[in-house]
């Protein structure tokens, strides 16, 4: 297991490097630069600033400089948030994004898995069809449509919940963003769980458990649960990625000062180092979490553990 983990960590290095190269090229390919503004600077001032940030060097040299910083754990200074390093910005924005993401993931797992199991047990019933209808809807409607609709209904019309972040207090302000973020994941996880639970309920070992007179509750809880959530487990990696990217939109819509907002601002402002820093940070996070998920497999399925 240790050997496997080590190999996987080493295997992640080329992936990360590729991410860095692609992100670097894409940021620089976008027209404009970090210091282009509506107010045009005098030529020599602009040139001074460019030189101070080494933006006048050829692209390969800039890349080499960036990479060497990266290898020393330095994500560089932000070009637009003066006096802040990218690392400081990530440290200030990430905790909030993390809280949103964890809450959304927990909600998605809880509601997704339980509704999937209920639908599988009542296969073909009205309840099953409702869950599946909701699931298809949840998957098909994008976050940027769901968010305003939820705000319109719960904040503007019903006035139950705050519409935005600033000014609102307490836990209530988390509710709409977390639900928005979790909705598509709930839908997908419910579908996955339902399908895999139906498969598991049809296996010989569940038939054995029935033949032993174990009630449905025990059969679901002890015999069927672990095998049924295996597909959900393998979806966790993509789900985490989806929630991270979803949070970029959600933070923008609800005005939440998280890492997603920094990312959007950074991209609009051509804040090269900030965008690159966040991309690399997220990529590392996703790779690490995927590895964790793969190791989790072995914890749940004894047959995987042996390898």
């Amino acid at each position: 297991m240790l050997r496997y983990t080590l190999l996987r960590v080493l295997g992640a290095i080329p992936t990360l490097l590729l991410v860095v190269v692609l992100a670097f090229l894409m940021v620089h390919a976008a027209p404009g630069g970090p210091f282009d503004d509506e107010r045009v600077l005098p030529v020599d001032v602009a040139a001074n600033i460019q030189a101070a940030y080494h933006l006048d060097e050829p692209l390969p040299a800039q890349f080499a400089r960036y990479l060497s910083g990266l290898l020393h754990g330095d994500l560089g200074p932000s070009y637009r948030y003066r006096d802040y390093t990218v690392a400081e910005l990530i440290r200030s924005g990430f905790p909030l994004s993390l809280r949103l993401g964890v809450l959304a993931m927990a909600l998605a797992l809880l509601v997704g898995i339980s509704s999937g199991i209920v639908a599988a047990l009542r296969q073909g019933s009205m309840l099953d069809r409702m869950v599946m209808f909701f699931a298809v809807t949840g998957i098909s409607i994008p976050v940027f449509v769901v968010a305003p609709l939820l705000v319109l209904l719960f904040a503007v019309n019903l006035q139950w919940l705050p519409a935005g972040w600033s000014g609102a207090s307490g836990a209530a302000k988390y509710i709409l963003p977390v639900i928005t973020l979790a909705l598509p994941q709930i839908a997908y996880i419910a579908r996955l769980t339902r399908a895999s639970m139906i498969d598991v309920l049809g296996t010989d070992f569940i038939r054995t458990a029935r033949a032993q007179g174990l009630g449905t509750k025990v059969i679901i809880r002890v015999h069927a649960f672990k095998p049924a959530i295996m597909p959900v487990l393998s979806y966790l990696g993509p789900a985490i990625a989806a929630i991270l990217t979803g949070s970029v939109v959600v933070e923008e819509v609800f005005g939440i000062p998280g890492l997603g907002q920094f990312f959007v601002r950074g991209a609009l402002n051509r804040d090269y180092t900030l965008v690159l820093g966040i991309v690399i940070f997220y990529a590392t996070l996703i790779i690490a979490l995927n590895l964790a998920v793969d190791l989790l497999y072995g914890v749940i399925d004894p047959r995987v553990r042996q390898r």
Binding site: T203, D204, F205, R207, T208, A209, R210, A211, Q212, G213, L214, H223, K226, P227, I300, D301, P302, R303
Partner: peptide
């Protein structure tokens, strides 16, 4: 089931829960 009537199935790999 299980208490008064027991049953043994054909393929014990499939019939026992691998988890």
């Amino acid at each position: 089931r299980g208490r008064r009537i027991g049953i043994v199935f054909q393929d014990p790999m499939q019939a026992l829960n691998p988890y």
